[in-house]
Design a protein around this nucleic acid. Structure first.
Lengths: 196, 196
DNA sequence: AACAAATGTTAGTTACCACTAACAATCATT
DNA sequence: AATGATTGTTAGTGGTAACTAACATTTGTT
């Protein structure tokens, strides 16, 4: 178990996650995974016992656990645009890191509901942090008096939409680069579009 | 073929769409569909030949085709908040009408890509209409000078997010009613959140 | 009542796939 | 070179599900 290059187990997990992300858990066969990882079917079973075992191991190995608290305590500047841009990047980075897991969570939301929990926990955690941030910004008089939790939901909703649409259909729905989308959403979110 | 109540074929299509929406095309069996529609397996095959045939017929029968042009030409008031609220309702109504189709389009985005086209065509159509609307609002001096297509994308992104998250996970991600979400997104989109 | 269309029943075919078992080949480490 | 661990090969089992075929039953219409 001295994994020097990429161990056999890791190659299997990588292949499995990639395939399941595209085709969904049920449509991927062990044979496909084995071929993609350049091993025999038997090797897959010897490592992970069952097909579901492969998925669980793949998720455990590849999931990105965010540390939003760190982001907030270390990098907040109390400048609205700058902070929201930072938060947006932090959120999208985590979501992108978990892209495969998210897509599988959607496809298997009835058969593997615990997967969706993983994602929604991250989102809720961040939502609460943003809520607190908005409360303090209102106290500082740098933000309008609005329900903080609702506004946090709205902000994350825009970002979620970008992530989801690019993960599912690439540029088909939102034809913007990540930076451009963040810049625009932060701008619009802070200033609105109405004149005067 | 004098469909008086609900014809057998329609009952099958209804059951099929409902089941596929939840479990995905592949995980639904013809037997399940037949049971849900209170017919025998054979009846399903006699009507639609293949499983894919069932899905295609169900989509053809149940898809909602929007008439956004009508919405714009008839109901626009050139008051930003009011119009955006109207547009938001129109969009979400169409998406909700196509909810099952959308969910299947996601699950089968590699096997049935034409399904996603249906949805993205609607969205693009509306995006173009909003773009023109923004152009005219800018000409009227009622809106800031911003790239109209980009802003239209941002607005639809917020709505798309609401639709998607409720369709996939109900209240888990966005815990707001439709009206509340629309009111907030229109408000934030028009006025922003920053003080002065 | 009589006929035809729609539906039910039953049995079976075919294909796929998760998973097992037994044995052979390879590889790494000493 | 020897040994133990890892991987490959092959054959098979059991279950499931799409789809077919033949025949029986029900239902609607005249």
């Amino acid at each position: 178990m001295h994994e020097q290059k990429i161990s056999t187990a890791d190659r299997i997990l990588q292949a499995a996650l990639q395939l399941m992300k595209d085709k969904g858990f049920n449509l991927v066969t062990i044979k496909e995974i084995a071929d993609a990882a350049n091993v025999s079917e038997m090797t897959v079973f010897r490592h992970f016992e069952t097909k579901k075992g492969v998925l669980e191991a793949a998720i455990e190995k590849n999931k990105v656990v965010p540390s939003f608290k760190h982001t907030f305590t270390k990098h907040i500047t109390w400048e609205l645009e700058q902070d929201l841009s930072l938060i947006a990047h932090a959120y999208l980075d985590v979501m992108e890191g978990n892209e495969s897991i998210c897509l599988i969570a959607i496809q298997e939301r009835f058969t593997l509901p615990e997967l969706a929990d993983l994602i929604s926990d991250h989102t809720e955690q961040l939502k609460v942090a943003i809520t607190e941030y908005f409360d303090q910004m209102q106290a500082k008089g740098k933000m309008m008096t609005l329900d903080s939790y609702t506004q946090a939901s709205m902000f994350l909703a825009m970002l979620f939409s970008f992530f989801m649409s690019t993960a599912l259909w690439e540029k088909r729905f939102i034809n913007m680069a990540k930076e451009e989308f963040i810049a625009n959403s932060v701008r619009t979110f802070c200033h609105g579009i109405k004149k005067q």
